[in-house]
Design a protein around this nucleic acid. Structure first.
Lengths: 228, 228
DNA sequence: CACCGTGCTGAACGCGTGGTTAGCATGTTG
DNA sequence: CAACATGCTAACCACGCGTTCAGCACGGTG
């Protein structure tokens, strides 16, 4: 294996031109998948990476394995990003504010959105973590007195997370970006358009009367804490 | 054209077996597309309809035209369903409650969700109408005093609609149904899981302090009424 | 009866796909 | 130098796709 192993093991990032072909292929795949979905052909990815299609197979064995490696790589990256920003991700902010704001990570956002679009394991994992995080943040927020308590914190965290991510997904799907930089502007647009109604809803609510909620609470014996 | 024209023009629905082959193909396509997305092969649709793949082309010319006809058919059906239920769709209910509740229309729901998943014109049209409806409903609700007014009703309607539809889309995507009846149970599950947190959020809000909203309002000159 | 239109089929075509493989270029090693 | 390992390519294969087309069955019409 010549010196590839050494290079690869040596560092996480380097200037694009002196990356291992393997890493270059992986990054090209992430970008392609992010931009045009997982229907992207191996040949297109290979072309982006400046190599032949055969080499992709040589390194990864199959398209699925390539994707799996992209998934794993992104999952690790996302975990790192989250850990770096965990302190700043205050409960009051939208849950993935910090995550989505980093512009240099546009391909990651795009890739994750594409994963959601096709419901892959990565998406499930990602959303699962997202919900778990949201549960933690809201719990902290409730304890700190800045967030109103819920009768079912997990259900609320899940509801809010799915709503936010789903709305973003929908927005991006309806108006698909042609390249990653386009994506960040869409994400930004989503936030700027949603921020006011979200804040209004979060602080002023939507209904003037408690009737509908109370009727529901009357009807249902007690809030489930975890089902299914 | 033998008697097909007469049959076809005569009625909208009939018992499945004596439908025109053309209508049978259309319905089969709607079902297939709803269940497995628009990647479904013409051959599979033809098989479902009990005809050959060639006949599909004979009647519709191309897969795209077949899909266009499905779109048109569903758009018309949805319009009719909406008109039928317009009186009952009170503002307080989730906006597409009535629509999603009808079980016999599961294929329609599935088809629309698939459309959202791939961002087709039907989805844009559908969501556009959905937002327009929501604007109307909320306006009525505000006038009636049951909904709190917003600084930007359109933005709120759009936000709420995209959130609801997006969350449902996400839920269905993450846990894809294998047949239409499976779909209705997922939709039901989504509602039952979301209803409490949604009602809580709508009546009790999420944040205990107005600070974040007020800071935003301070920062932004005044609410835009329509941009982009 | 022959003729023909028409709903319809089954085999085929062209193409793009993921995947395979023979072999080239290069550099290390005996 | 010869032998070999290895990153890499070009040509190829099998397959599934949308689509085409020659022709069959059948019913109305002269």
């Amino acid at each position: 294996m010549r010196s590839a192993k050494a290079e690869e093991a040596g560092s996480g990032e380097a200037s694009p031109s002196d990356l291992t072909a393997r890493a270059r292929i992986r990054d090209a795949a992430i970008n392609r998948f992010a931009v045009e979905g997982f229907g992207a052909s191996v040949r297109a990815i290979a072309a982006d990476a400046g190599v032949s299609a055969g080499l992709v197979m040589h390194h990864f064995g199959s398209k699925d394995k390539l994707r799996a490696e992209c998934d794993a790589h992104l999952l690790a990256t996302i975990g790192r990003l989250k850990r770096e920003n965990v302190a700043e991700a205050a409960a009051g902010h939208s849950f993935f504010h910090k995550f989505a704001a980093v512009e240099e990570n546009a391909p990651i956002v795009g890739y994750v959105l594409r994963s959601m679009q096709d419901g892959s394991a990565l998406a499930q994992d990602f959303i699962g973590h997202m919900v778990d995080d949201a549960v933690g943040y809201t719990k902290d927020g409730v304890a700190a007195g800045v967030i109103v308590p819920s009768r079912d914190e997990t259900a609320r965290a899940r509801y809010l997370t799915l709503s936010s991510l789903g709305a973003l997904l929908l927005e991006v799907t309806l108006d698909p970006p042609s390249d990653p930089s386009d994506l960040v502007s869409i994400v930004r647009g989503y936030f700027t358009n949603s921020y006011l109604p979200m804040m209004e809803l979060f602080t002023e609510g939507f209904l003037t009367s408690r009737r509908m909620l109370d009727e529901y609470l009357m009807y249902v014996p007690d809030p489930p804490s975890g089902e299914e």
